[in-house]
């Protein structure tokens, strides 16, 4: 079976000296992994490589069997549709209603005429589907709101609704709870993983906060200075492993 995501000796550096070095890892279909590590360890870079936004300098990244960075045109767009991404900010388009923001999740599957039609006068079945997703996320009454009117938590839930509507095979989340009130973080993360499980998709969730490791994940990837220094189950990610990952170097 094709893995949802595979890194093979991937290198990518930046002028700041940060980046990733020789990462090799595989994520099976339906697997959920927490990506942890200190700031600047390369978590966002690894996710952007997986999403095809960055091309590796060496090695290969394969997402659902495709090397996204080498695809162009329709093939790239179709591969993008199978990958969903959630970031800390800028997930939603201000000036576009919540309904349309969620509907945008299907842009990769819709022909241009349908995108235009749904932008001007959304089809009833599509609206109903979006409504049911928003209802589940307790956002049913915000269908026509502008994202600028939403709280941080609500905006993140709308972005989650979009991913649920998109139904990608691989979900990538870059510190999705970082902007939220600390009391809401655990709940928001649980909700995200619940949706991933429902969709039977694979996911890489980059986390900054170690306390969130109580979340329902299958594996943990630990990144330090751009290198993958831990790959195991949450149970094996004990105090020693955490200390090694986060302790300041001499």
């Amino acid at each position: 079976m094709t893995p949802a995501l595979a890194f093979a000796d991937v290198h990518r550096s930046f002028s700041t000296g940060r980046g990733v070095r020789g990462v090799t890892a595989t994520l099976g279909a339906g697997e959920v992994v927490a990506l942890v590590g200190p700031s600047g360890a390369g978590k966002s870079t690894l996710l952007r490589l997986a999403a095809g936004e960055l091309a590796p300098e060496a090695g290969t990244v394969s997402t659902g069997g495709h090397d996204l960075a080498t695809l162009r045109g329709a093939a790239y767009r179709s591969a993008c549709d199978r990958v969903g991404m959630l970031t800390q900010h800028d997930n939603l388009t201000p000036g576009l209603s919540v309904l349309h923001n969620v509907m945008a999740g299907r842009l990769g599957r819709w022909p241009a005429w349908l995108a235009l039609r749904n932008r001007l006068r959304p089809r009833a079945p599509d609206v109903a589907e979006v409504e049911s997703i928003l209802d589940r996320l307790e956002l049913g009454d915000r269908l026509h709101a502008d994202p600028r009117e939403l709280s941080g938590g609500e905006a993140q839930r709308v972005a989650l609704a979009r991913l649920s509507y998109q139904r990608p095979d691989l979900w990538l989340a870059d510190e999705p709870t970082a902007g939220l009130d600390p009391r809401l973080r655990a709940r928001a993360l649980a909700l995200l993983i619940e949706h991933v499980r429902d969709a039977e998709a694979a996911a890489v969730v980059a986390l900054h906060d170690l306390e969130l490791l109580d979340a329902d994940v299958d594996r943990v990837w630990g990144l330090r200075d751009g290198a993958l220094v831990f790959d195991g189950t949450p149970e094996t990610f004990g105090a020693d492993a955490r200390r090694e990952l986060y302790e300041a170097r001499p």
């Binding site: 767009r77 939603l92 945008a104 842009l107 990769g108 819709w110 995108a115």
Partner: peptide
Amino acid sequence: RAIERLGGS
């Protein structure tokens, strides 16, 4: 970028 990533035309 969030919209571009969705793979739309």
